[in-house]
Design a protein around this nucleic acid. Structure first.
Length: 202
DNA sequence: CGACCGATCGTCT
DNA sequence: GACGATCGGTCGA
């Protein structure tokens, strides 16, 4: 049995958002509130490189009430509503005033699968439960009111249980749904676990 | 204050 | 492959 440890500032506040996005693969995202515990292993992520990234909400340093969260210290949650329907969960990284973030796009469910099925109104476990960022947030019970939450606390956090992936198990590609970002839409900022059923297709 | 649109998903053809 | 759902964020007037 490997030792389980919660990721902390020394993980989140590093300067390299691509490295963090890659290293988040294989880690376990846990939520516990309302007496319900759910967890899943992260199998797909995307990096958003802040002020210089046309796909990022913080491009050109745009600060608003919503994006302000990304300008805070690494190690907090950034959750926002997309298309008026889907809540998307991101991990803020880097130091204060550097608005980097990693979008969690897919999980492999571990604990509390019955709770996830209940939240998503599904009857059985299949790859649609936690594939895609909207589904991940729904299954984990994450909403916009969790935005700004500190990931070092007990409600929403990520742990390393010693699970390891080697380079050959990681696929790198361009991000999904960011065609409006022109040349930045081509950046290879998306990371997935090769062959995992919960990773989006393209 | 009004208009436009998005880091998506599920359903239909 | 195409499209509708659905609403807060953002920006311009």
């Amino acid at each position: 049995m490997s030792k389980i440890k919660k990721l902390d500032h020394s993980f989140y506040q590093r300067n390299d958002v691509l490295k963090i996005a890659k290293e988040l693969l294989g880690k376990i995202l846990i939520t516990q509130f309302d007496g319900q515990i759910t967890s899943g292993r992260i199998v797909e992520t995307e990096a958003y490189a802040g002020e210089t990234d046309k796909a990022s909400h913080a491009y050109k340093g745009r600060r608003t009430k919503r994006t302000e969260i990304m300008f805070g210290e690494g190690g907090t949650a950034y959750v926002y509503l997309c298309y008026g329907i889907h809540h998307l969960f991101n991990v803020v990284t880097n130091k204060k005033d550097i608005p980097h973030a990693v979008l969690i796009r897919a999980l492999e469910p571990l604990d509390g699968i019955d709770i996830m099925l209940d939240r998503t109104r599904k009857s059985k476990l299949d790859f649609t439960l936690t594939r895609g960022p909207g589904n991940v947030s729904k299954a984990m019970g994450l909403f916009t009111h969790h935005s700004g939450k500190n990931l070092l606390q007990e409600e929403v956090f990520i742990v390393d249980d010693g699970f390891k992936l080697n380079k050959k198990q990681i696929v790198i590609s361009k991000r999904i749904g960011v065609d409006y970002a022109e040349e930045d839409a081509l950046l290879l900022y998306r990371f997935g676990v090769k062959g995992n059923k919960f990773v989006s297709k393209p």
